[in-house]
Design a protein around this nucleic acid. Structure first.
Lengths: 92, 92
DNA sequence: TTCCGACATCGTAATAGAACGATGACCCGG
DNA sequence: CCGGGTCATCGTTCTATTACGATGTCGGAA
């Protein structure tokens, strides 16, 4: 849990979460254990393209994942990433 | 632990930590339980003014505090802020 | 095949972040 | 009182982020 890699990981993960809209998205996905889809857009006061951007950031950080389900995309928490975030923050 | 305030707090705290240099600073201050001072500058490959800026960000987020000790300043972890960060991340 | 709805991506504008050197404020030993 | 050392702040440059509308892509219903 030490070392430069861990530091970089922690910085990357916290940076991904370091935005109110992205925190809201994470909470939304955690609350509904089921993967929701673009309902997220309706829950946030942001344009669809902006939400899509935030989802991309969270996905690239490994905090969420999205599965294509027909015409829509189903996002849900990536347990591995969330666990790693918790572990790294806990190590402080 | 719910609500918009918590979301905003979590975003603010993680944003403050969302930078490799600031993660290193936090780790440094956690490791040495004693408050170190501008030794931080010597540990990081950054200019003094840049480190000072990062320290300001962490301080404004409530993650560290600095006490004036004669001609130097002594920084140490603010347990309250760190605890709140851990609690908020843990609530996800 | 053609269209519609759901997402993603592009292009762009405005704002914020990171880094540096130079300068300013401050305490303390001479 | 003067200088040196320690930090903070200022001004600047470059890059990244955030947000939007417009456009592109791709299933599936008609």
């Amino acid at each position: 849990m030490e070392g430069d890699t861990a530091d970089q990981d922690l910085a990357t993960l916290t940076k991904a979460l370091g935005n109110p809209a992205r925190v809201q998205i994470m909470r939304l996905l955690v609350r509904r254990e089921a993967c929701v889809c673009g309902d997220i857009v309706n829950e946030l006061p942001l344009a669809q393209s902006t939400v899509s951007q935030h989802l991309k950031v969270l996905k690239e950080a490994g905090l969420i994942k999205g599965e294509i389900d027909g015409p829509r995309v189903c996002y849900c928490v990536e347990p591995r990433g969330l666990r790693r975030l918790k572990a790294l923050v806990g190590s402080l």
